[in-house]
């Protein structure tokens, strides 16, 4: 499957009010549905055709920037979610033996580096566009992350 294509599809759904889109092309069917409200996530179903082949990949890409943080959903606290701008590997520190850029409970300024995403042997420093208190870290060090995957939730003052 063409990941670039899938990425564009996810972006398209995120940027519009479309709740569901299904595309069938060259023996492959892709369906993207947006679950609104509490769960606020996108589900991407990818099924090879014909359907006689039961094996299929199931990719779940969590929702993007405007998604409310699960932890904060119960109250009125304003939050901001830092998402991954690219597909890659998530690192919380600049080097294996270095301290993490941010910890839960820490208050950071807008423009602070919060992590590194490695893709194609490029180490990209990712900044938070907003300042606030880090209340959740949603990705694990050294693990792959998807395009637009939520990484950090900040409580905005």
């Amino acid at each position: 499957m063409d990941l670039q294509y899938l990425r564009k599809l996810l972006k398209l759904v995120n940027e519009t009010n479309v709740d569901e889109i299904e595309i069938e092309e060259g023996g492959t069917r892709i369906r993207v549905t947006r679950a609104r409200a509490a769960a606020a996530s996108q589900h991407v179903m990818y099924a090879p055709m014909p359907e006689a082949h039961p094996a299929h990949a199931h990719i779940t890409a969590p929702a993007t920037t405007e998604a409310p943080a699960p932890a904060a959903a119960a109250d009125d606290t304003k939050t901001f979610t830092v998402t991954s701008p690219i597909v890659g590997t998530f690192y919380r520190a600049p080097a294996p033996d270095a301290e993490s850029y941010v910890q839960v409970g820490q208050t950071i300024a807008a423009g602070s580096t919060v992590c590194i995403i490695e893709a194609m042997k490029i180490m990209n420093e990712i900044e938070s566009d907003r300042g606030g208190k880090v209340i959740r870290i949603l990705a694990e060090n050294g693990q792959p992350v998807e395009y637009n995957q939520p990484l950090f939730v900040l409580e905005i003052a």
């Binding site: 063409d2 670039q4 597909v87 590997t89 490695e118 194609m120 042997k121």
Partner: peptide
């Protein structure tokens, strides 16, 4: 490799995936 630079690989079971790191 794709236009995005990712490396398309096939494992021993014939499953394909694109690598961006590693």
């Amino acid at each position: 490799i794709g236009a995005d630079g990712g490396l398309l690989v096939e494992d021993s079971l014939g499953r394909r995936r694109t690598l961006f790191a590693g």
